[in-house]
């Protein structure tokens, strides 16, 4: 397996990870550095604009998308983010948001071409072998993987996360029933249609119980925010971890 040439990336950590789950951001940095990638964190970054975009607040979302473009255009390095849904926002959402604004649409298109979700970047872009990435992880336990909708269907990343998990020596991967089905998070949807979101959550958690996993893994902290919140409320001992937390080498 050829080793990738020294690489530098701009990390878009996402606002959820920044503010609620900073450990995940640190794990992503460790993982990238372990894979031989130099990480830069543009400090002016905030939010990709997805909450506004998904809520129909296009004007507000456009303003944040422009901020994002301004911040990440300063470097030509690829943009890597530990979130399928934020990556999909940048890769697909911006094109829609700027559909009637050709100059900014062109900017968005150029940026989209060098924006990657973390697992996608490591396996599909750098073409690293899974054990090169995840072989040093000290993690042990029974794991079920929840493929978030935006990573799976939005970006079409269907195998990378599970290939990486399978390369962790201590991981016992358990199949998750109805894995490809949405967990019911959906951003504002979870608040506007709380009971509907909860019903979908119940379906997903029934699958988690059936999988007999100790740890539920996903590449989107937004799904895990919802899933862990539900598991805690149910008194479950299953804990949720971001993919990077399972794959990363020890601190």
């Amino acid at each position: 397996m050829p080793t990738a040439s020294p690489k530098r990336v701009q990390l878009f950590v996402t606002c959820i990870i920044d503010a609620l789950f900073p450990d995940v951001g640190e794990a992503a940095v460790r993982l990238l550095e372990h894979a031989g990638v130099e990480v830069d964190f543009p400090e002016a970054q905030t939010c990709c604009g997805q909450p506004g975009y998904n809520g129909g607040f296009r004007k507000e979302a456009r303003r944040l998308a422009l901020h994002f473009l301004d911040v990440f255009e300063r470097s030509a390095d690829p943009i890597v983010t530990p979130s399928g849904s934020c990556a999909a926002m940048i890769v697909h959402g911006y094109l829609d948001l700027f559909r009637d604004d050709p100059p900014n649409r062109a900017r968005a298109k150029a940026l989209a071409a060098r924006t990657f979700e973390l697992s996608q970047f490591l396996l599909d872009e750098l073409r690293l072998a899974p054990d090169q990435v995840a072989g040093a992880s000290p993690f042990r336990g029974r794991v079920a993987y929840h493929p978030s909708c935006h990573l799976l269907r939005g970006l079409g990343v269907r195998q990378a996360p599970e290939r990486l998990l399978a390369a962790v020596p201590g991981v016992e991967l358990r199949p998750l029933p109805q894995a490809a089905e949405c967990c019911g998070f959906g951003g504002l949807f979870a608040v506007k249609y709380g009971d509907l979101s909860a019903a979908m959550l119940d379906n997903k958690l029934a699958g988690v119980r059936a999988s007999d996993a100790e740890t539920l893994v996903s590449a989107d902290m937004s799904c895990l925010l919802h899933l862990q919140g539900g598991l805690r409320r149910d008194g479950s001992t299953v804990r949720c971890l971001h993919l990077a937390q399972v794959l990363a080498p020890a601190e």
Binding site: V13, L20, P22, G25, G194, S197, A198, G229, R233
Partner: peptide, 17 residues
């Protein structure tokens, strides 16, 4: 509507940045 069914995590005292 969130906390009717789910706990919500506290914001980190020391964020990633």
């Amino acid at each position: 509507a969130w906390t009717d069914r789910r706990d919500f995590p506290a914001f980190a005292a020391r964020p990633f940045r």
